[in-house]
Design a protein around this nucleic acid. Sequence first.
DNA 1: TTGTACGCGTTATCAA
DNA 2: TTGATAACGCGTACAA
Lengths: 358, 358
Amino acid sequence: MKFEPVTIKQMARDLNLGISTVSRALHDSHEISEETKKRVVAYAKKLNYIPNPIALSLREKRNKSIGIVISQFNNPFCSQVVHGMESSFYSQGYQVSIVQTDESAEKEMKAIQYLSFRVDGLLVSISSETKNIDHLKDLYEKGMPIVFYDRICADLQTHMTISDNYRGAYEATRHLLDQGCRRVAFVGGAVTQSIVQERKAGYLQALEDGGINVDPKWIHYLPKGGVHYVETEVAMDRLMRLPKNKRPDGLLTAWDKVTADAYRYLRRHDISMPGELALIGFSNFPLTDFVSPSLSVVQQQSEKLGEVAAGQLLSLLQSKRKPAKFHTEVLMPEIIIRESSSKLSSGEKEPLKVKNKD
Amino acid sequence: MKFEPVTIKQMARDLNLGISTVSRALHDSHEISEETKKRVVAYAKKLNYIPNPIALSLREKRNKSIGIVISQFNNPFCSQVVHGMESSFYSQGYQVSIVQTDESAEKEMKAIQYLSFRVDGLLVSISSETKNIDHLKDLYEKGMPIVFYDRICADLQTHMTISDNYRGAYEATRHLLDQGCRRVAFVGGAVTQSIVQERKAGYLQALEDGGINVDPKWIHYLPKGGVHYVETEVAMDRLMRLPKNKRPDGLLTAWDKVTADAYRYLRRHDISMPGELALIGFSNFPLTDFVSPSLSVVQQQSEKLGEVAAGQLLSLLQSKRKPAKFHTEVLMPEIIIRESSSKLSSGEKEPLKVKNKD
DNA sequence: TTGTACGCGTTATCAA
DNA sequence: TTGATAACGCGTACAA
């Protein structure tokens, strides 16, 4: 089966008219007789004629659409971000087309190449496997408006919107210390990801400020970024099998999926939270308030992040040339303290919210 | 800013060659001298030349990509389905482009129109607001391969892949009756959705088979399909404010978001599960096993559903003409019984699984 | 071995 | 008021 759309040429033949006459009729030109105009419009409607946007693209070099490159929407944070982006573009008449990379560098390259000729701008969150972004750089130098969100890439100077990962991790780690934890572990996603590095930096600084000497055994990255449960499982096994005096009593997980899987691991192995291990993690999952024990999280402003990034892209789309200056917008995540990390008063209580300053 | 790609014409000018010579060189034609071939290839590589797929589309009337129309990936079921679809297409060299409709009929129409000229086939799950599918029918009649998944539309005869919603709801309702419930309520999504209707039919049949007279007050649809918490809240309020002898003691929720929101409602209002109300609902949310009380669910085979639908579309893409016969693939959901619906032995216990037969 | 011309579907320009 | 023609980028049949 193949789609065979109605064309102007076809209609012109059917109506015994010139191609351009038909075109003009459909564009409501004045320089055409009322009669033929009506005849053409009626026929086009009958055949459900739609101008071929591919042909228009070729001519006008404009697609009226933008592309979003996402790692996996099988991640509430990502889907929330996309939702924030879409509303902005929709109101401006842009179509939004989304492509998943599944954390694969190869898929990412293909996805970007695919989108590049079909959209007017790109919102990109780099995959965790990606090392080489020459293809993106090249695209950018040829004039493609590109905005990074969430996971940035310092090699390419353009607008970006990110969370304050450093501070989110810093405050979360500090909270664990305040609760009496002295051996705080860190399980990140992929070592290559900007967000994981920023979060680790915040974690390390909080430990240093708290006068804690970090044991390198407390720090784990996950080879494939933590997409599968087993990765987190291996890291958790290593942590929990440390001799008792080295075993962590607190844990910061630095990626949504890892947080959920660490929680799953602890419940499966009957390791009590926060008694044996206090847990707080980056997560935008729903239902974290109803699991038992309820889960403390560092929650990003996902929708807002999407909106801000969308705004940046729209401004690039409208500007005549590459702007001289680029902005990096930073959003503060919310720290929501719940049972899984509350060692001091471990009974039920209202969750304490560290609200954003802005 | 605007993307200005390198073209063959540009390179031909730069190298003082004819356009077709450049084209041939890049296609490794024999009828060309080694020297010019090398020269062209080297230059193209230097400029990172990529053939314009838009121009190729126009010429070859083939896009090597397929489109997925989804309501909202802010729904684990949907993202799982998409994941299942993608792997099939990726291995066949198709790019996958995804568009969200947000349950809006207008967005759906625009999305489909947008995709129709840019992809070779369409996987569609109809939005809950959609009443008129003339645009889809028209597309289909003009040869566009279309496969429905999850939410079907009887008006259009083509391949479909769905869950056995009827049986899933039937078994779930029956389970509630087995647990001693006598007044089982039903909260669905949008009244227009095929899946909601199928699920209601299963629910009604189970009640009839159990000798229960249905009170119409037990049945609620949600105006916008339940995308927002308030919709479920209103329905739950109505149910729980019924006089005690009419108030439901069991509840089947017929859509993922509604299930999560009903659970949220019951926890917020301190209505005990399963004591005051036994709850089971359609849901593919993660973490339902760790909420407290753990949540009984009817869980669809989401990835599988995506794979099967993808297979159907691939077969349409390969077939010469419209097939004479269309298949509807039906997948049995899993019923996972947990605490929220276990009235008989309300202590901790191994979740009982009703496994699929196939 | 290379260059020219055509067609894919459109719109804009020019000529009739 | 209408119709033929060029252009967008590409590949290919044909001519040189």
